[in-house]
């Protein structure tokens, strides 16, 4: 079953005289539970593709299906609910809310949904990221690696079907980078989540099940490493 399906996706910037094609007729499918890395040089369109899949940016044309739902037809409120419940997004710069504690940052998607916190799952998550002693700390009191672990936990809090990671290790040293990918792999196995990881680091990409190579907005190579 395809968790993500992209059909003839185009994303153009600029005017007709000076048009920049960030994505040029991209089509792909990603199966449920697959861990996919998207690689490519700077400006190849990998982040644009991830943002459009995540519903935080709009395509010029084409369709994106998440779990068979065409998200290009959703309005901003429906997209917000989709992001809150079905998607988890992790950024390079962690993007934690500075005024909230580690605990509150992790619980934020559930709190915004006005749902009760699943304490057992929450305990499980914080054990997974190993930040139990820092729950009451504020983001600025944590190291970069710790902050990214909080961001992963926050992305997982609502048990999303898909985890979208935009250069999650771009701001970390190699030891922390490997550690973060290990966490992602662990959640992939544990919760059967589909993970799409954008990176320019070939070594990181090799840890995924499949690597999609982008160049000038087109898929130039799609290789499956393991099933």
């Amino acid at each position: 079953m395809d968790m993500i399906k992209v059909e003839h996706l185009n994303k153009f910037y600029g005017t007709s005289d000076n048009i920049i094609k960030a994505l040029d007729d991209v089509s792909l499918t990603i199966a449920k539970g697959q861990f996919v890395a998207i690689v490519g040089p700077s400006g190849s369109g990998k982040s644009s593709l991830l943002h459009i899949i995540g519903g935080v940016d709009q395509a010029t044309s084409g369709k994106v299906f998440i779990n068979e739902l065409d998200i290009t037809k959703l309005n901003s409120e429906e997209l917000a609910i989709l992001r809150r419940r079905d998607l988890g997004i992790i950024y390079q710069f962690f993007n934690l809310i500075p005024v909230l504690t580690v605990e509150e940052n992790i619980q934020l998607p559930t709190l915004l949904d006005h749902q009760k916190i699943d304490e057992t799952y929450f305990e499980e998550l914080i054990s997974l990221i190993g930040l139990k002693p820092r729950l009451k700390s504020l983001p600025y009191q944590l190291s970069g690696g710790q902050q990214q672990r909080v961001a992963i936990a926050r992305a997982l809090m609502n048990k999303p079907n898909i985890l979208l990671c935009d250069e999650p290790t771009g701001n970390l040293d190699s030891a922390n980078s490997v550690e973060i990918i290990q966490y992602l792999k662990k959640t992939n196995v544990l919760y059967q989540q589909t993970i799409v990881l954008v990176t320019h680091d070939e070594d990181i990409a090799l840890m995924a099940d499949r690597i999609i190579h982008l160049k000038d907005g087109k898929i130039v190579k799609d290789e499956v490493l393991r099933r």
Binding site: V56, A80, R84, P109
Partner: peptide, 15 residues
């Protein structure tokens, strides 16, 4: 930035 972060994790306009 804070608003963008909240947006990206699915805060509704109403919230």
């Amino acid at each position: 930035r804070q608003i963008a972060m909240l947006n990206s994790i699915g805060i509704s306009r109403f919230s």
